[in-house]
Design a protein around this nucleic acid. Structure first.
Length: 423
RNA sequence: GGAGAAAUGGCAGAGUGGUCGAAUGCGGCAGUCUUGAAAACUGUUGAGGGUCACACCUCCGGGGGUUCGAAUCCCUCUUUCUCCGCCA
């Protein structure tokens, strides 16, 4: 959520910056400013009325104490009138405040200066590429065929138990998946992230805190009986640890990593591109989350990008990094780098990580602050990234490592798997 | 799931209708003393809105109500604890 003060002071700059997202924010921002004025006006009137009422109440108390009941009763008449006024003003204030809040929820984060203009993923800017694309064997198969051939993932079984998009991993497939999770967590821990296990269901407030609500309401599974949401990413529970907190400046950087399953409804996604592991309703992901000092958050973002590079280098997967354009940038992010692995048998890039700096956007919703050197509290910056999303990494490994004699396991994973070939 | 008790500042813990944003202790910060530290002593120490700065307003788990006036009374929700039931 953008800060009101920023909207008041830099409205024009924000409008220009939001054009990168291909939206004209002027009407929204003008409404925000007008409702903010209404709110403050109502607040001032209410405060003055309350002040008078408080004062009179004290006097009445004094009068009763000194036995001047008659005078007290006379004063009461005035307070009864004030009480009515308070009611009206309170309502006025609430209306303006609610309207203001819902407007603020509708405004996405302001893109960072480095975010390129553009409307679709085709306009994302490739900033880095590394790793050789392997020459595959003649009859190379896409991962869903490999999964069947070696009996390591059963999509039909998942359909039977839950529905499409809920695969069942078997034998070495399950083992490889578990190996990846352990490997990622170990890498993150070695890089200074504290491992953490969090709930896989979150309440509505948490959804608002990180920005999934109200923007992505339809993308989350909603347990209506208990009004809980299945997490679409560990970002939600992990970042919400810091909701309503004031952290100590010297605690920075705060770094957490956690493995969770992720649940996404993916309403409206169909077609060839969602085959196999490409897009699922349930998948596993290891996430890294940071809370940073505003002065350091972009350096931290670069650090996260470097960290993920080292993982992909070790896995020897060909990948590229994209700087997302304004049109493809998530609602809450100021700057996002996507990592994509080349899926050789499908001849396409698969997104396996998304690393973002949210600046104060989430912190504002979360009320996540820190005390600066002057003792003033100000909003911290939050960041997160996938390290990594499992299914597409798995798809990349299966496809890129396939040989005539089976699928070779990347060297770093062999100690975690306990085998070196799927055959 | 049933019965009871509770929820107050960073922590502990007073406060049952008015002068309570809240005693006291601990912790934190600043100072005195000290070569330095400890101890002792003194002062200070929640958040948000609002203002040039004051004033002023809001917040004692959340929401609603009674009252001129609520941390204190009533309703409701949530959470925690104790007992019973169920259970990985």
């Amino acid at each position: 959520m953008l800060q009101l003060q920023a909207i008041r002071e830099q409205k024009e700059e924000i409008i220009i910056a939001l054009k990168k997202r291909n939206i004209d924010a002027a009407p929204l921002l003008n409404s925000v400013i007008s409702f903010d004025e209404k709110r403050r006006e109502a607040q001032t009137k209410l405060d003055n009325t309350l002040a008078e009422s408080n004062k009179l109440s004290k006097e009445i108390g004094q009068l009763f104490k000194s036995g001047k009941a008659q005078e007290a009763t006379a004063l009461k008449e005035r307070t009864v009138v004030l009480k009515e006024e308070v009611k009206v003003l309170q309502e006025e204030l609430n209306t303006a405040a609610d309207e203001l809040q819902s407007l603020l929820y509708q405004i996405p984060n302001v893109p960072h200066a480095s975010v390129p203009a553009g409307s679709t993923e085709d306009d994302n800017e490739e900033i880095f590429k590394e790793g050789d694309i392997p020459k595959l064997i003649d009859n190379a198969l896409p991962h869903w065929e490999l999964a069947k051939k070696y009996d390591i993932i059963d999509f039909e079984l998942g359909v039977k138990i839950a529905g499409a998009g809920f695969p069942v991993y078997k034998g070495k497939g399950a083992r490889l998946q578990r190996a990846l999770i352990s490997y990622f967590l170990d890498k993150n821990t070695a890089a200074g992230y504290t491992e953490i296990q969090v709930p896989h269901l979150v309440n509505e407030v948490s959804g608002y805190g990180t920005g999934q609500l109200p923007d992505k309401e339809g993308q989350m599974y909603h347990i209506t009986a208990d009004d809980l949401y299945l997490i679409p990413t560990a970002e939600v529970p992990v970042t919400n640890i810091f909701r309503d907190t004031i952290v100590n400046e010297k605690d920075f950087p705060i770094c957490y990593t956690g493995y969770t399953p992720c649940f996404r409804r993916e309403a409206g996604s169909y077609g060839a591109h969602v085959r196999g592991l490409n897009r699922l309703h349930q998948f596993d992901k290891v996430e890294i989350v940071r809370v940073e000092h505003p002065n350091n958050s972009f350096a931290a973002l670069d650090g996260m990008v470097e960290h993920i590079k080292t993982i992909l280098r070790e896995l020897k997967l060909p990948y590229r990094i994209l700087r997302l354009c304004g049109g493809d940038l998530g609602f809450t992010a100021a700057l996002t780098f996507d990592f994509e692995v080349f899926s050789t048998a499908q001849d396409r890039w698969l997104e396996i990580s998304s690393v973002s700096n949210f600046e104060t956007y989430q912190a504002n919703r979360l009320k996540l602050r820190f005390k600066d050197e002057n003792g003033k509290s100000q909003f911290a910056h939050t960041l997160n990234g996938s390290s990594l999303a499992l299914p597409r990494v798995l798809a990349g490994i299966l496809e890129n490592y396939q040989t005539e004699d089976g699928i070779k396991i990347p060297e770093v994973l062999i100690p975690y798997c306990g085998f070196d070939t799927i055959d």
